[in-house]
Write a protein that binds this DNA or RNA. Structure first.
Length: 430
DNA sequence: TCCTGCGGGTGCG
DNA sequence: CGCACCCGCAGGA
């Protein structure tokens, strides 16, 4: 949003503070959920945004009692690193997610580095005047107001899901090292040549996206040349094992951040709908086919399944179509959509998917098990599968998925399935 | 077992 | 008074 485009009303909406007695209610633009809010940022989410409802953040944020039941305050715990500063494969650093629970965190710090068995150490966050960065959440009417104070002065930890998946895998590994991975593979699953096959390799094959140091980078989180810090392709890399798209996914690739982002745009475009690139031709109604198909089922194909069910179209609401600064919550991020309107003159989502791509999408939606949500976040979107050309990952979830129909998938896709999916993908990486 | 939110309580500036 | 932080509790996954 350009400042000069702001009218006084917009300015008023932007000038709120989380502590204000009265927060703006005439909100015209709700924000994409920000997984990695940093600096002094404010966002207004829909009260139906599941990620916002859960006050999620990929930073390790713990609850802080501010003795104000109206405003939830959370403070950052920093990141757990290897005190030996060891490096995993491809020079990736170990940035673990601090446990939120105090006891669990103490326990965590007694554990050893999963890479080198060295002691772990917690780097506290001191990004807010020497104190941890704080996030504030406040539910007000149809909106959830978010405000962050401070700038994280440490690398990003694993995301919550990565940490959970790592724990899960570790548990599985400990419980039965002889369990055949075949149990987790669908009949169509194929191992990818060159992939490691040990569970023990897991974390270093996928979970340390934050330590990815692109050539020319500053060694910190991905920022240079990229307006957000975590591209969907990073997620694809770590969770979907898109090793086939080496130049996109491989953190050791010589592709620089800007180039990477340019390449990302292709697959991001549909989702983020950002800028000129993302404006689909008005004549392109292929997405509406999906919409209509699903409308027949009485649900919004783009945000159903426990994702915010925005009244769609929602008069008077729109989303900022600039790219989110952070990756979306893969869990439940709705895709902010705006119906075709005189205002934007464009359709909300993918830029210009041709018929073939559309067909592929439909095929995958109905015939393949795919990342379990129809909240098509960039990370999960089956469309990205088509773009990223990685057919190996069209597999079926044994048993359960075989009886799923479209409607059930819409209904049931959630974190658990997501995690299942992650594990399935992990198995491909190993 | 851990996450999350709540709230009582303490200490500091 | 605001803030950071400790602690325990409860509900949930």
């Amino acid at each position: 949003m350009e400042p000069e485009d702001l009218d006084s009303e917009d300015k008023e909406i932007l000038s709120w503070d989380i502590n204000d007695v009265k927060l703006p209610q005439d909100v015209k633009k709700i924000d994409w959920f920000q997984e990695w809010p940093d600096s002094y940022e404010k966002y207004i989410y829909s009260s139906e945004d599941r990620s916002a409802q859960r006050h999620l953040s990929s930073w390790a944020m713990r609850n802080t009692n501010n003795h104000n039941s109206r405003i939830l305050k959370k403070s950052c715990l920093g990141v757990v690193v290897c005190s030996r500063d060891c490096s995993a494969k491809e020079g990736r650093k170990i940035y673990l997610r601090p446990a939120i629970c105090d006891k669990a965190r103490q326990k965590q710090q007694r554990k050893l580095c999963p890479n080198c068995d060295g002691p772990l150490k917690l780097i506290p966050c001191r990004g807010h005047g020497g104190f941890p960065v704080t996030n504030f959440w406040r539910h007000e009417g149809r909106f959830i107001f978010f405000q962050s104070k401070g700038e994280h002065d440490h690398p990003k930890p694993e995301t919550k899901m990565e940490a959970e998946a790592r724990r899960t895998v570790k548990k599985v590994q400990g419980a039965s090292s002889s369990v055949s991975l075949k149990l987790n593979r669908g009949p169509e699953a194929k191992s990818v040549p060159g992939e490691a096959t040990s569970w023990g390799n897991l974390p270093f094959n996928w979970s340390f996206q934050e330590s990815i140091h692109l050539p020319g980078g500053d060694g910190g989180p991905l920022t240079a040349g990229i307006p957000h810090q975590k591209s969907p392709n990073e997620f694809l890399f770590k969770s979907y094992g898109l090793g086939g798209a080496a130049d996109l996914a491989d953190p050791t690739s010589t592709v620089g951040p800007s180039e990477l982002y340019e390449k990302c745009k292709v697959s991001n475009a549909r989702i983020y709908g950002a800028g000129d690139l993302l404006q689909p031709p008005v004549s392109d109604y292929s997405d509406l086919q999906i919409w209509n198909k699903s409308a027949a089922l009485g649900r919004n194909p783009l945000n159903d399944n426990g994702c915010p069910s925005y009244p769609f179209p929602q008069a008077g609401w729109s989303y900022d179509f600039s790219p989110p600064q952070n990756a979306l919550d893969p869990l439940s991020q709705q895709i902010p959509v705006e119906p075709p309107s005189a205002k934007t003159g464009c359709l909300p989502l993918w830029p210009s998917p041709g018929p073939d791509l559309y067909e592929e999408k439909v095929h995958m939606e109905f015939n393949s098990y795919y990342p379990p949500t129809t909240c098509h976040s960039p990370q999960e979107d089956p469309f990205l599968f088509s773009y990223t050309s990685y057919p190996h990952h069209q597999y079926s979830l044994p048993g359960k998925s075989s009886k799923w129909n479209f409607d059930e998938e819409m209904r049931y896709m959630g974190l658990d399935h997501y995690n299942n999916e992650m594990l399935l993908n992990l198995s491909f990486k190993m």
